[in-house]
């Protein structure tokens, strides 16, 4: 058990020194999209709209946090694809006397850290844009809010890991972004409520993890009750994704 933690730390250490070296670049580049969303939809378009009696920006911020944590954590882990296919540096981990789980967990945690840093920055930005955030008022809501964000980033880090293990070309990797992450960014209750969608579309969208994350973050962010079932759904996704990640890593040759 101690060995497992030590090995997780080694994997995490590698990602941490790489991140540290490029922290400023990382922060700047990852802030562009969320700032644009805040400006265009929150400040520009949103001033004339109100949702459920609140301002649109208060409605929007949890959505942006959800989609951003998805995108950052997924894309933070995809360089493993190049380590496997191109540089072959993944071989060092395969040859090492470590549990395969240590590698998966270490990589997922490192992606979660990146996602966490950018979430914190968005919260600060959102407040500068005049959003009011309720979860800060109650400790329980605050912890739950944080937990949901972390689970969400773990799910998408895991998905990124699976993609990095299974997919063989760069092109296909970027197609995952275009055909899966981008549509989810817009449709999963991030910019508008899923209840406005046609029934069949809505049924599919409401099965997706990001929809549950948006719903939970928004509920907690506006000080409303949230249903525990959404948290359970996210936990189930997390368990499935992590066990699939481990399997994918074990199968790498």
């Amino acid at each position: 058990m101690i060995r497992l933690i030590e090995d997780i730390c080694t994997v995490f250490w590698r990602d941490w020194i790489v991140l540290k070296r490029r922290l400023t670049k990382f922060i700047l580049s990852r802030m562009v999209a969320p700032i644009l969303y805040l400006v265009a939809f929150g400040y520009g378009l949103g001033r004339s709209i109100s949702v459920e009696g609140g301002t649109y920006i208060d409605f929007l911020v949890p959505g942006i946090l959800a989609l951003n944590s998805m995108n950052i954590s997924f894309n933070s882990i995809t360089p493993v694809h190049a380590e496997r296919v191109y540089h072959k540096s993944l071989e060092e981990y395969i040859l090492a006397p470590i549990a395969p789980a240590a590698f998966v967990i270490g990589k997922v945690l490192a992606a979660m850290l990146r996602s966490f840093i950018s979430s914190a920055l968005i919260l600060v930005l959102a407040m500068l844009f005049g959003a009011s955030l309720q979860p800060l008022s109650s400790p329980v809501a605050m912890v739950t809010f944080l937990l949901v964000l972390l689970i969400n980033s773990a799910i998408f880090a895991g998905l990124g890991f699976i993609a990095a293990m299974r997919i063989n070309t760069y092109e296909e990797m970027s197609q995952v972004n275009t055909y899966i992450l981008l549509p989810m960014s817009f449709l999963c209750g991030t910019f508008f409520k899923t209840s406005t969608l046609p029934d069949t579309v809505r049924f599919v969208i409401e099965l997706l993890p990001l929809t549950h994350t948006s719903y939970l973050l928004r509920g907690l962010g506006t000080g409303n009750e949230v249903s525990v079932s959404s948290i359970v759904v996210l936990m189930i996704y997390l368990a499935i994704v992590l066990s699939m990640s481990l399997r994918a890593f074990n199968r790498v040759e």
């Binding site: 090995d7 080694t10 250490w13 590698r14 020194i17 790489v18 380590e83 540089h87 072959k88 540096s89 071989e91 060092e92 981990y93 040859l95 090492a96 006397p97 470590i98």
Partner: peptide, 30 residues
Amino acid sequence: KKMIGVVPQHINFDQDLTVGENMELHARLH
């Protein structure tokens, strides 16, 4: 895995790490 050492045919260093960090990664993993 503990008793073997492997020198692959292709160069497989971690391109994001320095010479020393590549060595340290191996040492830590072992």
